[in-house]
Design a protein around this nucleic acid. Structure first.
Lengths: 341, 341
DNA sequence: TTAAGAATTGCAAACGATTGCGGTAACGTT
DNA sequence: AACGTTACCGCAATCGTTTGCAATTCTTAA
């Protein structure tokens, strides 16, 4: 017996002296088929280790039950938790997942979209690259299969988008600092007007306004690459000011951790002198000392929700343009970096 | 025009008044076809946005160009870096990747193997669950498609295995501590005799023996769940000893970080009083203070190598049992937790 | 002019599963 | 005895692509 052999309907049929169609129907519990015949077929199928060739099936039904996923970076922690949710929900619903990375390159991203549609996926889940300039390519694939965006999204693309309540989350985070008695609250955000950064910044502003706190342009800092290193760099700038801020809201855990590292270096007491709040509840946030107060983004829920909406569109195709935005609730995880004394 | 329509060879053929076979051959640059005909066909194909139905193709060739990947936990950092390598190499070689998680459940793992073979993957890359008791299921799928194991492997399964040089890596790590002047070196390892833990422990022993350092059973600690929490717990035990160790080798970064947290709490100076070395070079290792000396495991290289060996077996099938073990070199990343004063 | 040979192109089967429709046999009804 | 019904099963087409072989046209040399 060849190593890679797979039993087919034909073989079962031959063995049983039945036609292929009867065997097929028997296995699918078609009412036309005699009960004992069914039993015979099923028994033999089990014995011969039969399993249907899903490619033949997909080929015939023009449905693959495969969902393509495109993300900038699979080893980014938050992304991988989303992926976890996607995998779970997809499995429950009987879909398989093909993953690919864009590495934050727009060209790669469109290439991936093309590969996937060509491959015949039933739908695509995508988190966008940092910059997007040519949405035409995306619109073109959107014209062939349904797409659901998550995390890194763009309102310019007319499709369902699953995001967290960025603005409200940021509002809560900053309000938490205000309730701590802080009133000179710096923010470290992105220069690029990414969806996420923009929303979080808006939440920051709204919190300050809501509590009638003056907005100080000087302590609103931006960086292109919102990373640990630049978090540290910008914090050093904040520390060199005549009037230091008494709190820092970094729109990313990594930047917040950079801030803490800078504060630690200069022995600034956290949170007494400067409190810090991040965003993501990454694994790192529990490693740094003091542990970081941060916004918990339920990655698995985002993943599951994205899958649900996508499958909904796959199985109930409509020609209408769908531009629903679903917001997933977040919670603030308060840790030592902003604990009330 | 229907939203999901795909052009087929038939349509191209009809449009050009050619047969399907000619069109097919033209697109595949078959020498039999006239140059101008080829050009015409290709032009129309482009204009009509033709792309071959890969399912039909796979269906016919009985080759899917899909590799299945089964890992315990996709959001584990090291795993995700391996995945990154897998994705890259697979893409280069024209394969697609289907990922699924076993969540460290053996039952789930076999279920996944079945789903994947049924799906028709050309081969499987797998990192095993913590415990494996019934290797029969694995052997059965191994009988249908080639499997390559990586990271969490088992010698009981006769297939290619890609691992890091666990033993040598541990040896180097411990030797590094010895060269630092440490001689009372504790180890925190796993109770379960996992492949990794066993090898690292062996490296630890060899390093001590090689430098004629007495092996002290008391400071050889094990835990079932090698995590931050238990790293901390075991370190607390070490600290409560009359004669404290002067170094800790934890076979996992998380455990090492737990150790550092415990040491920090009791204001034990790192590395002067107790040096710490971990294993993995996880993102966390640069976050903790002091930053952690650790073994860097090149995840992407493991991923790429795994893919290479698997594809080799896919494309050159042999009926022989292959039981090659490939070891990937690691390097020790020295950071503050073990820096010479 | 003609036949051999080369250059093109088409026919049809094949891959594995599904399914509409038609066929057969057994049985019951009048 | 003739017909209708029911239960069960098979034929054959279909999905889109590839490919061995046959068929056709065109060249070219005898």
């Amino acid at each position: 017996m060849s190593k890679r052999h797979n039993t087919t309907l034909k073989e079962l049929a031959k063995e049983l002296n039945l036609s292929i169609s009867t065997v097929s129907r028997a296995l699918n519990d078609h009412p036309d088929i005699n009960a004992t015949t069914k039993q015979n077929v099923k028994d033999l199928a089990r014995r011969m280790n039969y399993s249907p060739n899903l490619f033949a099936r997909s080929f015939r039904s023009q449905k693959t039950n495969i969902i393509g996923v495109v993300v900038p970076n699979i080893s980014h922690y938050f992304t991988s938790t989303i992926l976890k949710g996607i995998l779970e929900e997809a499995e429950i619903q009987g879909y398989r997942i093909i993953i690919s990375e864009s590495n934050n390159s727009e060209a790669k991203q469109t290439e991936m979209l093309n590969t996937m549609t060509q491959f015949g996926v039933d739908g695509i889940l995508m988190s966008l690259t940092r910059k997007i300039e040519k949405i035409d390519d995306i619109l073109q694939t959107l014209n062939r299969v349904p797409i659901v965006l998550f995390d890194k999204v763009s309102q310019k693309i007319p499709c369902t988008q699953i995001v967290i309540d960025e603005e409200q989350a940021a509002f809560n985070a900053v309000e938490h600092l205000i309730e701590l008695g802080k009133e000179r609250i710096a923010i470290i955000k992105e220069t690029e007007n990414s969806y996420n950064s923009e929303k979080r910044y808006a939440g920051y502003l709204r919190a300050l306004e809501h509590h009638s706190i003056k907005i100080r342009e000087k302590i609103i800092l931006s960086t292109e690459d919102i990373s640990l290193i630049h978090g540290r760099r910008l914090t050093n700038i904040l520390l060199s000011m005549k009037k230091r801020p008494d709190a820092i809201f970094a729109i990313t855990d990594n930047a917040a951790i950079g801030a803490i590292k800078a504060l630690n270096k200069f022995k600034v007491k956290i949170p007494e002198e400067v409190a810090v709040v991040g965003f993501s509840n990454s694994a790192n946030s529990k490693i740094i000392q003091p542990e970081l107060t941060t916004v918990d983004q339920p990655g698995d829920k985002i993943g599951r929700t994205s899958v649900k909406y996508l499958i909904e569109e796959i199985e109930n195709p409509s020609n209408d343009v769908i531009t629903k935005t679903v917001e997933i609730k977040t919670t603030l995880v308060v840790r030592d970096s902003s604990l009330r004394a």
